[in-house]
Every structure is written in structure tokens, then in C-alpha cells.
Amino acid sequence: MMDKNFEPRIVAFLCNWCSYAGADLAGVSRIQYPTNVRIIRLPCSGRINPLYIVKALQNGVDGVLVSGCHPGDCHYISGNLVAGRKFALLKNFLVHLGIEPERVQFSWVSASEGPRFAQIVKKVVNEVKEIGPIEKMVKRL
């Protein structure tokens, strides 16, 4: 399974106010991290419909990273807290069905956590590399 040259494709859904800003800060600070991630900016982690995550897997994305403000920091007061419940349930559910836990990961990254953003990307990329390309769930015609 382990292909040394496997470069996974990761989608990251980031909230505009903290995590996207954290990613910006990683950039401003020139912190280098793997090129695999493609960011989709959303107003808030609360905007993320769990089905987007399932859809990403179905589309053949190797890993999904979802990130929002730390609890209490959400620009929209409670978006991340409400979303947190959905995320926790979804993650467990997908793992229950046999999807590798590494494929769908969640994090809280604040606007001042550029390094943390880079680390979390590294972690997801490395872990997904470990488990190889996505097979499950993908719709290949």
C-alpha cells in the first residue's frame, strides 16, 4: 500500500476569521508546509455541512481537514460550538463504517497560530500518506 511517491490531495475547509487567518499568518511567517492542501474558505466552521466532507471523499479527495476558531472565539459567537457536535458525531460515524480516522480531521486554529496551522497540515498530510490513497467511498466510474 505504501507508495513512497504518493502525494495525497487534501481539502481544508477553513473559517474566515481564525483558521484562514492562521493560514495567512503561516504564510506571512514563511513557515513551510507540504503542498498537498487546497483551502476552501468559508465564513465559519458552522457553515460546513457534514455532507461536504462525505462529498469530498466521494470525489476522491484523500483527506479532509476542517478547522475553525477555538471554542469561545467564533466570530459568530457559537458557530463552532454547534458545529463541533456535528463534527464529533460525523467523525465517529465514518470511522464506525470503516473510513480511516486519518482521512477526516478537525482542528481549532486561531488567527495567531500560524505554526499550529502548518503543523496540523503536516500531520494530516503525513498520516494520509501513511494510509495511502483513498479507495473507500470514492466514486470511480
Binding site: R47, I48, Y52, Y76, G79
Partner: peptide, 25 residues
Amino acid sequence: GCGACAASCRSAAIDLKGFKDEQIL
């Protein structure tokens, strides 16, 4: 415009302009 409503509606009956389901998908 936080979109928490849109992300929660099971019927996708509420959507967030500028970040609509179809646009994101």
C-alpha cells in the same frame, strides 16, 4: 451570514448566498 443554519438544515432548504451549497460543491 455565518451559514450555521444552512449547514444544519437537513432539507437544504436554507442556503447562504455567496457560499451556496452548489457553489461549494
